[in-house]
Amino acid sequence: MSRLVTVLNGPNLNLLGQREPEIYGSETIADVERACHARANELKLEVHFHQSNREYELIDWIHEARGRAGGIVINPAAFTHTSVALLDALNAFEGPVIEVHISNIHKREEFRHHSFVSRRADGVIAGCGVQGYELALLRLARLIDATG
């Protein structure tokens, strides 16, 4: 199985470190990307890292990952709670998917408790801050190794 992992970030994550730092922390999306590349290097993974505020771009990147990537890490952000289209795209992806949320969505507003993406995800990491991305990569490395 490919050791390429696609890391996808949804809307407003480009404002990470500026928007609601009391919830999301002070690290930026660039900090997250650097940490992902460093952890991936340790795990002998290759990472393609993307962020978009546009649902269709996330869907296109999921489609591109088909047949190429060994797994997907996705923080769908607000699309978590609204996007059947992301769920459908992820259902067409053959490898494992790990869903990441920086905050604990279950301690927040009621509407954040529902995730369409979770219906497809092989694991969900929430409330671990940006470290959740590194945990997701660790899990994907294990899953990729297990299917060897």
Rank of each mutant, 00 (worst) to 15 (best):
G70A: 00
G71C: 02
Y56E: 14
F49R: 08
E57R: 10
Q51H: 15
F79E: 05
N41F: 00
A85V: 00
I72Q: 09
V47Y: 11
T80M: 01
R68D: 00
L45G: 11
N41E: 13
G71A: 03
R68M: 01
N53F: 05
E55K: 09
G71H: 02
S52V: 11
H63Q: 13
H81K: 09
E57F: 09
N75G: 03
I62E: 03
E46R: 13
E55N: 06
G70I: 00
I74Q: 11
R54N: 15
R39V: 03
V84Y: 09
Y56K: 09
T82E: 07
E57Q: 14
L58Y: 07
L86H: 02
H50T: 02
T80V: 02
Y56Q: 15
A78D: 07
H50M: 08
G70M: 01
I74A: 10
Q51S: 11
K44N: 14
I74D: 13
H48V: 12
A69T: 02
I72D: 10
I74E: 13
F49L: 08
E57S: 07
T82G: 06
S83Y: 08
K44D: 15
A40K: 04
E64F: 04
Y56W: 14
I72C: 04
E46H: 05
A40W: 01
I72V: 10
H50A: 08
A65D: 10
T82V: 07
T80I: 00
I74F: 04
A65M: 07
E55P: 12
E57V: 06
V73P: 08
F79L: 15
L58R: 09
Y56C: 09
I72N: 06
L86R: 04
E46I: 05
Q51C: 13
S52D: 12
V73F: 06
E42M: 06
L45T: 03
G67A: 05
F79A: 04
H50Y: 13
R68N: 01
A77Q: 03
E64M: 07
A78R: 03
H81Q: 15
V73H: 04
R54M: 11
F49W: 08
S52P: 14
S52Q: 12
R39N: 07
K44L: 12
G67I: 02
